[in-house]
């Protein structure tokens, strides 16, 4: 039973100050939550890492100079988010690992990113469509995380959201323009959407980890993001004259539990090469 304030001598100022003070951070005060929190942070950080890496593969090879710059810029934002998410994950884990250790020294089965982001870039249509489908989810997720009961999580979400707002604006705009551009650009965008759609359901499929984090007020239940995501996606795809696919969206899943496509292993082999070949070296 929590002690009640003394009603007879109310210290209004102190009560007001108390009300303003942050609620106790469940990430720091509830030790049983730490495994789920570590897992949840890796899910966020691994998705931004893998997508940032994929975008960086475009370097110098984009269809226009402005596109090269924009893709590098988004990749840079996502690597920045990775540093924050995996940095916090490493702190929470308290096992002496750093964000770099998590990024460079885990094998595929320990990665927790969405399958969607590890798929190869394909042409620019696929890269942009993947970005749009992810951005729409990412934006909604971060917006919800800004209200997290964990101050640390909320703080990162606030920083990342500013950038992701721009990512979503840009990818929506390009999806509309290219969907409603030439017959060829429409054909490519439609093909990309068709190919990627079965991977989108994973973003909303919760498991026990998600339930624990939602219960503690740290992160939203993934299923609760679906309505907003579907709203944005429908609006943009319709304006793009592409329309929402009818097929099932929840076919390809497992990345968030460590069961990946064949593509992730190659991505990691490349990304982790130096850390693996020269263990312990500083760069």
């Amino acid at each position: 039973m929590p002690s009640l304030p003394d009603m007879t001598t109310p210290n209004v100022e102190a009560l007001a100050a108390d009300a303003r003070a942050p609620r106790p951070d469940p990430a720091e005060t509830v030790p049983e939550l730490k495994p789920a929190l570590f897992e949840g942070l890796c899910r966020l950080g691994d998705s931004t890492l893998v997508l940032g890496h994929r975008l960086s593969e475009w370097c110098g090879k984009g269809p226009a100079l402005e596109e090269d710059i924009a893709l590098a810029n988004i990749a840079l934002d996502l690597i920045g988010h990775t540093q924050m998410w995996l940095g916090l994950a490493a702190e929470v884990e308290e096992a002496g690992r750093s964000a770099d250790d998590l990024a460079y020294l885990r094998d595929a089965m320990r990665f927790r990113n969405l399958l969607l982001v590890e798929l190869p870039n394909g042409d620019m249509a696929r890269t942009l469509m993947r970005q749009f489908l992810f951005d729409a989810w990412h934006h909604e997720m971060l917006e919800r995380l800004t209200g997290s009961d964990s101050a640390r999580v909320a703080e990162i979400a606030v920083k990342a959201l500013k950038e992701v707002r721009y990512h979503l604006e840009r990818s929506s705009d390009l999806v509309i323009r290219l969907g409603d551009g030439t017959a060829e650009s429409h054909r490519r965008m439609a093909g990309a959407l068709d190919m990627l759609w079965p991977y989108t359901g994973e973003m909303f499929a919760g498991d026990g980890t998600d339930a624990a984090l939602a219960e503690a007020g740290i992160a939203p239940d993934p299923a609760s993001l679906h309505e907003a995501w579907h709203g944005i996606v429908t609006e943009v795809l319709e304006e793009a004259t592409l329309g929402v696919p009818e097929g099932r969206a929840d076919v390809q899943k497992g990345g968030r539990q460590g069961r990946h496509t064949e593509h992730l292993g190659y991505l990691l082999a490349e990304m982790q090469f130096l850390q693996r070949a020269y263990p312990g070296a500083e760069w």
Binding site: L49, G52, H53, S56, E57, C59, A72, A75, L76, I79, G80, T82, Q83, L86, A99, D100, A103, Y104, E270, M271, F273, L274, Q275, A281, W283
Partner: peptide
């Protein structure tokens, strides 16, 4: 860029 050895180096090179 895809083989940069740390997150920081990757970000700087990007």
């Amino acid at each position: 860029i895809t083989r940069a050895p740390t997150l920081q180096r990757k970000a700087i090179l990007l």
